Each structure stands twice: as C-alpha cells, then as structure tokens.
Computed example of a mutant assay.
Amino acid sequence: MQLVVARIGRAHGIKGEVTVEVRTDEPELRLGPGAVLATEPATTGPLTIETGRVHSGRLLLRFEGVRDRTGAEALRNTLLIADVDPEELPEDPEEFYDHQLMDLDVVLADGTEIGRITEITHLPSQDLFIVERPDGTEVMIPFVEEIVSEIDLEEQRAVITPPPGLIDESEAVVVSSRDEEAAAAEAGSGSRERGSASDAVESGKDD
C-alpha cells in the first residue's frame, strides 16, 4: 500500500535542501536518510533522501542528485509516497493510519448512527473527519480525544461525544454538496483548482 508521508515545500538555502510538510507520525522511519520514495507527480521521482535535519521546527531534506536551489525549487509541492505493508500498525496503539479510519461508522455513545468517514482532512492545528450522513450531507468532526472517545477497528466504528451544536440538525457544521459549491465559486472566477487530497495519507490521532 502506498501512503503519502510528506509534501515538499520551499527550497531552503542554496545547496538543494527543501522544507517538507510532514504527514506521518513516524518521520524517523519514513523520512530517514536512504529512504526511497515514490512521488506525485510520478515523473518527479523516485527520490532518495540523502540527509535530513530539523531547523526552526521544520524538517529539511536533501535528495540525491539535487545540489542547488533551482533543483530544490523544481520539487516544490511534490508529494512523497512510501510503500507500507497494509498489515503494519503504528507503534503507539492510540495512533492510526488514515486507511484504517476510512469508512468507519461514526456513532454516538448510545449507538445513534451519525454517518461514515469518507475523508480525512489534515490541518496544521488538527485533523478532521469528513463524515457522510445517511441523508447525503456531510459534517466535519475534529479528531481530538475530547470528541472522538473511541476507535474500535474490530467493530469498524468511531464513537464520538460531540459538544452541543456540532452535529445538531439545527446547528450542524454541514459541508454538504461541497463539489457543487466549489463549482459555483469556480464558475464565478473562471478557474478550477482542487488540491490533491490523496486517498492514502498517513497520520495519527495526535496530529
């Protein structure tokens, strides 16, 4: 199974280093020197990590064959993809890979059905479950311990204890028909742009 583990950002300095947006809870394992990673777009890779270091709280990587700022800038926005055994689990039992969480049923503590996880969005501050409700609308559920009280992989469900207003019909944070809304906005601007939210992104609960 292929999982996105990072996205390349801006060039750093003049010797080929790049900043990376880490999308794995195991950067030492996935993004260490010697790691060979596939890429999106595929024509950019594969890339082999030569060196890595942390600078001002950001991970910097240099790849074999990339020696200057021009080469580093050419890699900007490239997704780095690792081959992972689908049976492999994170070392921390409280962490999960995205592919484990996709399609889980979302229920309240009393068993009331809320919907099904169809997407996981990774934000700088937290992760969000995009949950499709039985009527086709969607709600965003922050993936934090205060709200997601249990992940039961055997039962294929996520138990939530939402605060008032999060999923209430009258106050729900609804993201229904996102494509239609985006299309309307794009029609007004005359352009269409949608980020590649990879269907295989690796992350843990503590992001």
Rank of each mutant, 00 (worst) to 15 (best):
Arg7Cys: 01
Gln126Asn: 02
Asp98Ala: 03
Arg178Pro: 03
Leu123Ala: 06
Leu37Gly: 09
Ala172Thr: 12
Asp25Ala: 15
Gly165Cys: 03
Val107Pro: 07
Val173Tyr: 04
Thr112Lys: 12
Arg157Asn: 08
Ala197Met: 05
Val84Lys: 06
Val106Gln: 06
Arg23Ile: 00
Asp168Met: 11
Leu59Ile: 10
Gly57Ala: 11
Glu180Tyr: 01
Gln126Tyr: 05
Thr48Ala: 09
Glu73Gln: 13
Glu28Thr: 15
Ala109Leu: 06
Pro33Thr: 13
Phe143Tyr: 09
Arg69Val: 12
Glu26Met: 09
Ile147Lys: 08
Arg53Asp: 03
Val173Gly: 02
Ile114Val: 15
Val5Asn: 02
Ala109Ile: 09
Val22Ser: 04
Leu108Cys: 08
Glu119Thr: 10
Val106Pro: 11
Val84Met: 03
Arg30Tyr: 06
Glu113His: 15
Glu91His: 15
Phe143Asp: 02
Ala42Gly: 00
Ala182Arg: 14
Ala109Cys: 03
Asn77Arg: 14
Leu166Ser: 06
Pro33Trp: 10
Asp98Val: 01
Glu113Val: 15
Leu80Arg: 11
Gly57Glu: 11
Glu193Met: 10
Gly190Cys: 03
Val106Glu: 07
Val107Lys: 14
Thr121Glu: 05
Ala42Trp: 00
Asp135Val: 11
Ala42Leu: 00
Arg194Pro: 01
Gly188Ile: 08
Ser189Trp: 07
Ala200Met: 00
Val20Gln: 01
Pro41Asp: 01
Val148Cys: 08
Thr137Met: 02
Val175Arg: 09
Asp68Trp: 07
Ile120Asp: 01
Asp179Ser: 04
Ala11Pro: 05
Ser170Lys: 13
Ile147Met: 04
Gly165Thr: 08
Glu180Pro: 00
Asp207Glu: 14
Pro134Arg: 14
Glu28His: 15
Ile167Met: 04
Val4Thr: 10
Leu89Thr: 11
Ile151Pro: 09
Asp110Thr: 13
Leu47Lys: 11
Val106Phe: 11
Glu64Gln: 11
Asp25Asn: 13
Ile147Gly: 03
Thr70Asn: 07
Gly16Cys: 08
Ala38Arg: 06
Ser176Tyr: 04
Gly188Val: 13
Glu146His: 08
Ser189Gly: 06
Asp68Glu: 10
Ile151Phe: 10
Arg62Val: 12
Ala11Thr: 06
Ile117Gly: 03
Asp207Met: 05
Leu89Gly: 00
Arg53Ser: 09
Ala42Thr: 02
Arg30Lys: 07
Ala158Met: 11
Glu132His: 10
Met102Tyr: 05
Ser177Pro: 00
Ala74Gly: 07
Asp110Met: 12
His12Ala: 05
Val144Ile: 14
Leu108Glu: 14
Glu138Asp: 03
Lys205Gln: 14
Gly111Ala: 08
Arg194Glu: 09
Leu75Glu: 06
Thr121Gln: 08
Glu73Ser: 13
Val22Lys: 04
Thr70Phe: 07
Glu50Met: 08
Ser177Arg: 07
Phe129Trp: 08
Val159Met: 05
Val18Gly: 03
Ile114Leu: 15
Asp135Gly: 10
Asn77Pro: 00
Ile117Ala: 03
Asn77Gly: 01
Glu181Met: 04
Val5Lys: 04
